[in-house]
Write a protein that binds this DNA or RNA. Structure first.
Length: 506
RNA sequence: GGCCCGUUCGUCUAAGGGCUAGGACACCACCCUUUCACGGUGGUGAUACGGGUUCGAAUCCCGUACGGGCUACCA
């Protein structure tokens, strides 16, 4: 009998959530739902210096937008709280001290200055970044080098101190990663990581193990950047709670930018969003663009993220959230990092827009148009417009350009597109067309087109040479859906008004 | 430098010993359309290199190269 699946996403509230973070959430979520388990969000705010106001709220708003809501979290409640590590501070010390008592950890009194000095003193060409490890710990100020009395004295005096894990010297630490298979490390190459900081807060290393245990996490997933510190966590599990109780690990491949691990800087540099939603750094005021505001549908966003490192083995690429839950499997997650391709991301969004029902698109498009200053009074009209233009919208924001002219006459008319080929004969044609349209009993695209072509034919003009000018008159530029469809939706009065106005400019 | 992970078209990937190495994005051409798209057809384009194992390797093993990550009292 296996225990209930419980997974967690443990972000540090230090800023916006980027692609890699959301994908980690996604894979956690999919795995949990697929296995009828729980998805927990735990806030890892143990570094008080990095606290950023608003970041935590941003994370939850992002999850909501993505449709990846946790079963348990600071905001959703649950019986394993608190879900914010800063509120769990008291819990960690006892575990750290237990490790000291059992000889797996020790107190270290070295000041930041002493640590810096150590790094300078031991720095060589061969070893550019010396670590606090078994080779040097006996030369530092800690409970291993100090006498028991001296240690007690320092402790009693309240001297600033940390607790470090004492990495064994000759031990192979290995575990089975669900994606990579067996991974092993030589314990002597890992340093004595700080477990409990001088301010009494745990570091990630202690907190992740303690909380995963207390919250009964069954599977622990995180990015590949955590792989090097895995041996510390494995050992902690062994010392504290037993290897047999340890969750199963999986380290996801990294999402790469044009130059290595994707960073928020890449977005501004290469012109694509990196964060899920807009994020403004409260300190600098710097805005980092988000997929949401850029015009992505959450359905498309999750879809494209899911496929960045995973596939179901078939050639299907468009998946709804429900399909992803049904088909997701950790075994099919890739081990190699994936470079993010914005062009393909846009393709996913375009596909989703094309497939999405007009009624579902309507409120989103409506909101966008209202934001750009357009008043929508007729929902059915907007439905018709969306039906007409959705195929040519890659991003939601494209709807603005593709439908604004339905609501107001173009402010600028591309006269240059018409003028060079404009002629007296064409002018006469449009004059006749206006008279004809004024009398038209049925105002629909079909008869409008028929009449248009008949008159052209009578005047010995090619319809093709007349349609562009007509389009320019109604739309203002060389874009948009079929011109007669546009005229139909515009209505008789508005169509003729725009024609008359534009003709005077040619 | 050390440790760890990785390596199939430009990009995301399929093929988990038998093959004309498949698909998608992007790109190019043509068709459809006398706007732009959608759609359709076709094309360019990849198993990093070297050794093994095997009747047979993109697939397994070793080495090399290259790429990435980590190397804080940050996560």
């Amino acid at each position: 009998m296996s225990k209930k699946v419980r997974v967690r996403f443990a972000p540090s509230p230090t800023g916006g959530l980027h692609l890699g973070g959301v994908r980690t959430v996604l894979y956690n979520y999919l795995f949990a739902k697929k296995n009828k388990g729980d998805f927990i969000v735990r806030i890892e705010d143990t570094d008080q210096n990095r606290y950023v106001p608003g970041a935590e709220e941003y994370i939850f708003e992002t999850l909501k937008w993505c449709g990846l809501e946790p079963d348990e979290s600071v905001q959703h409640g649950g019986s394993y709280g608190p879900y914010r590590q800063s509120e769990r501070k008291e819990i960690y010390r006892q575990y750290a001290e237990k490790l000291v008592a059992e000889g797996h950890a020790y107190y270290a009194f070295d000041t930041p200055e002493e640590l810096e000095k150590m790094r300078q003193d031991f720095k060589t060409a061969q070893n550019p970044s010396p670590q606090y490890d078994h080779t040097i710990r006996m030369r530092m100020r800690n409970s291993l080098t100090l006498s028991t009395e001296k240690t007690k004295e320092l402790l009693d005096a309240g001297t600033r101190q940390v607790i470090r894990i004492k990495m064994p010297e000759k031990e192979t630490v290995s575990f089975t990663d669900m994606i990579r298979g067996e991974v092993s490390f030589d314990s002597s190459t890992v340093d004595d990581k700080v477990l409990l900081k001088a301010d009494g807060m745990p570091t990630y290393h202690l907190a992740v193990v303690v909380d995963d245990h207390l919250m009964q996490i069954s599977h622990a997933f995180r990015g590949e950047e955590w792989l090097p510190s895995a041996p510390v966590h494995i050992l902690l599990w062994k010392y504290l709670f037993g290897l047999e109780n340890m969750p199963q690990w999986a380290h996801f491949p990294l999402i790469l930018g044009p130059n290595g691990k994707l960073s928020k800087r890449d977005g501004a540099k290469y012109g694509f969003p990196v964060f899920a939603m807009n994020w403004t750094d409260p300190k600098t005021g710097e805005l980092t663009e988000g997929f949401k505001e850029k015009g992505f549908l959450p359905e498309a966003f999750i879809n494209l993220l899911a496929l960045l490192g995973w596939n179901d083995g078939t050639e299907q690429e468009i998946f709804s959230k429900e399909e992803l839950i049904e088909k997701f499997s950790m075994e099919r997650v890739h081990s190699a990092g994936a470079k993010f391709d914005y062009e393909k991301a846009k393709w996913f969004n375009h596909e989703w827009i094309k497939r999405m029902k007009v009624e579902d698109l309507n409120p989103k498009v409506s909101e966008l148009l209202v934001q750009s200053g357009i008043t929508i009074t007729n929902k059915d009209l907007l439905d018709k417009i969306i039906t007409l233009v959705k195929d040519r919208c890659t991003l939601l924001t494209d709807f603005i350009q593709q439908s604004t002219f339905f609501f107001k006459a173009p402010e600028e008319v591309d006269v240059d597109a018409v003028k060079p080929k404009w002629s007296e004969a064409k002018k006469l044609f449009f004059a006749e067309l206006i008279r004809n349209y004024e009398l038209a009993p049925d105002w629909n695209a079909h008869t409008l087109e028929t009449n248009f072509k008949e008159i052209a034919s009578v005047n010995d003009l090619k319809p093709g040479e007349l349609m562009l000018p007509f389009r320019i008159m109604l739309v203002g530029g060389k874009f948009g859906p079929g011109v007669f469809e546009i005229a139909e939706l515009l209505g008789k009065e508005e169509t003729i008004k725009r024609m008359q106005f534009a003709i005077s400019k040619f």
